[in-house]
Simulated scan of single mutants.
Amino acid sequence: MSQDLKDKAITYLRSLENADWDTARAMCARTATVWHNDGKGESGIEENIEGMKGQIHTIESMRYDITRQLSRPGEVLQQHVVHVAAKNGVRGEVHAAVYFRFDDKGLITRIEEYANFIPAD
Rank of each mutant, 00 (worst) to 15 (best):
R14N: 05
K6D: 02
M27I: 08
F102P: 02
P119C: 08
G74K: 11
V34M: 05
E93L: 14
Q69E: 15
D20H: 00
D121K: 15
K105Q: 13
G41V: 07
I66P: 03
E93Q: 15
D22S: 13
R25H: 11
E60A: 14
I45D: 06
A19F: 04
M62C: 11
Y99C: 10
E17Q: 14
W21A: 06
I56V: 10
E50T: 12
L16E: 03
V90M: 14
Y12D: 04
I111R: 15
L70R: 04
M1P: 04
V76K: 12
S15I: 03
L16F: 08
R63L: 08
G41L: 10
I45C: 11
D65Y: 06
G41D: 08
S71D: 10
E42T: 09
E113C: 13
T33W: 00
S43E: 08
K8Q: 14
A19Y: 04
K87D: 02
D65H: 14
S15V: 09
W21G: 04
Q69K: 06
V94D: 13
K53T: 02
I49V: 15
S61Q: 11
K87P: 01
Q3E: 13
R25C: 06
E47Y: 02
A9D: 05
E47V: 11
H95E: 06
H80F: 04
V84D: 07
K105D: 11
V84G: 06
I10P: 00
S71E: 09
A96R: 03
H80W: 05
F100K: 03
T23S: 14
E47W: 00
R91M: 08
L107T: 03
A115D: 09
R101Y: 07
Q3L: 12
H80I: 08
A97D: 05
D121P: 15
K40R: 15
A26W: 00
N48L: 02
Q3P: 01
A19V: 10
L13C: 11
G106A: 10
R110Q: 12
K87H: 02
N116K: 12
M1Y: 05
Q78K: 07
T109M: 02
L77D: 07
H80K: 05
K105M: 07
S43D: 01
A97E: 07
R68W: 12
L5M: 10
S71Q: 09
T31G: 00
M62F: 02
